[in-house]
Simulated scan of single mutants.
Amino acid sequence: MIRKPIRKAVFPVAGLGTRFLPATKAVPKEMLPIVDRPLIQYAVDEALEAGIEQMIFVTGRGKAAIEDHFDIAFELERTMGGRGKDLAVLGPTRLPPGNCVFVRQQEPLGLGHAIWCARDIVGDEPFAVFLPDELMHGSPGCMAQMIAAYDAVGGNLISVLDVPADQVSSYGVIAPGAAVTDSLTEVTGLVEKPPLGQAPSTRIISGRYILQPEVMRVLEAQEAGAGGEIQLTDAMARMIGGQPFHAVTFAGRRFDCGSKLGFVEATLALALEREDMGSEVRAIAQRLLGA
C-alpha cells in the first residue's frame, strides 16, 4: 500500500522554560547547549536523518534566537572564511530556503493547541511531531525507526519507553494491544498523567509522534484536559479505533532534558562518547568523584 511520505515535522517550542530560570530568562531553553549543540539542533538533525524536509517551529515571545540559529550568519561566516576556518560546523544550522517555517502560539494553552497552530502549514499531509526536551539518542534515530514502522503499518504512531511504575503519573501512558513485532505494538487507549495505581501500563509516550492530518480537526474541538490545557494525548485517544494506532519502542537512550538532572546526564553521556573529549571528560569525572 502506498502511503503519503512524512515530509513535515512540527516542533512545539513556545514554552517558557521556567525550570531552568534564570538561564532561560533571555535564552530559550531549546537553545541551551548539550556539549556544543543547542538542544533544538539534536531534534532537527534527527528529523533530517529520517528524510523530513520541512521544519515547522511553533514559537512564542522571546524565541527569536531559534529563528536566527537556522538562518545564515553572514558576518560570522565571512569572518571565519576570511581567517581560513572550516565552515562545515555550521552546515547543520543552514536549512534549505523555504524549509524552515515559524508560527506563533500566542497563549500557553497546551501541547495540543501548539500543534493545532501549525494546521495550515501541515495541510492534508501526515506529519511528525518532535518534543525537543526529549533528547532521543541512538542510531538509527528515533524518528527513522518510526518511519520504518510507518512504512509497514501506516496510520498514527508514537514512540514509547518503559519506566518504573512510580513515574507514570508524570507522562502520557498507553494501553497496549496486540504485539506486531518485538518493538511495535497496537495501541488501544491513551491516558494523560494517570494517578498512581491507575495507569494501563508502564509504557510512556516519549516525545515523538507520526500523526495523520485528521488530528487537527479533533484538536479544533478538543476541550481542556489535565492541567487545564488542551492535551494532544486526549485528541489522539479519540482517534483510536477510527485509524490504525501503534507504539514503537525506541531502541536507544532517552534523556529528559526538560529537567536539570536529565540535562546534566545528557551532557555528560554525550561528552563521554565524543572522540575529541571523551577520555578527558572521563578523567575529570573520576577526579571529581575521587575515584
Rank of each mutant, 00 (worst) to 15 (best):
M143G: 14
A73T: 07
D71P: 03
R119T: 03
D133Y: 14
T93L: 08
T93K: 15
A144L: 09
K85H: 03
P108F: 07
G82F: 10
G98I: 01
F70S: 06
P140W: 08
E77D: 12
W116F: 15
G98V: 02
D68Q: 13
A65V: 02
A149T: 03
I72D: 13
V129E: 04
A152I: 01
A65G: 05
E125P: 02
G98N: 06
P97C: 02
G154E: 13
E77K: 12
E67S: 09
Y150G: 11
A73K: 14
A144I: 01
P132W: 09
P132Q: 06
P108H: 11
L157N: 11
H137I: 01
F130P: 12
L87G: 09
E77R: 14
D68G: 09
H69P: 00
A114C: 07
A148C: 10
H113D: 08
N156L: 04
D86I: 07
R104L: 03
K85C: 00
F70Q: 02
A73M: 06
I121S: 13
L95R: 05
A149Q: 11
A118N: 10
M146D: 12
P108S: 09
K85D: 00
M136W: 06
S139R: 15
A64F: 05
L76Y: 15
P132F: 08
F130Y: 14
I66H: 05
R78E: 00
D151T: 02
D71K: 15
I66N: 05
P126Q: 05
Q145L: 06
R78Y: 01
G138S: 09
I66R: 12
A149H: 09
G82P: 01
P97Y: 11
E77F: 15
R83V: 00
C100S: 12
C142R: 13
H137T: 01
H137V: 03
R78L: 02
L76D: 10
G138W: 10
D71M: 11
V103G: 02
Q106G: 02
E77C: 11
G91V: 01
P108C: 07
D68V: 08
D86F: 03
Q145V: 04
E134L: 09
P96L: 03
H113L: 05
P96S: 06
K85L: 04
K85T: 01
L157Q: 11
G123M: 01
A152G: 03
G138V: 01
S139I: 00
C100E: 07
G141T: 03
G62I: 01
D151I: 00
W116R: 15
G91M: 03
H113F: 13
R78T: 03
L135G: 10
T93H: 14
K85V: 00
F127G: 12
L87M: 04
L131I: 08
D124E: 14
G138R: 11
G141E: 07
Y150P: 10
V153E: 15
I147E: 12
D68F: 10
D151Y: 01
A128Y: 04
F74E: 12
F127D: 14
P97A: 05
P92W: 15
I147P: 13
L90I: 05
L90R: 14
W116D: 12
G154T: 10
L95D: 06
G141C: 09
D71C: 14
P96M: 07
M80D: 06
H69I: 00
R94A: 03
T79E: 04
L76R: 15
E134F: 13
P140Q: 09
I147T: 05
M80G: 02
A148L: 05
D86N: 14
L157S: 13
K63P: 00
D86E: 09
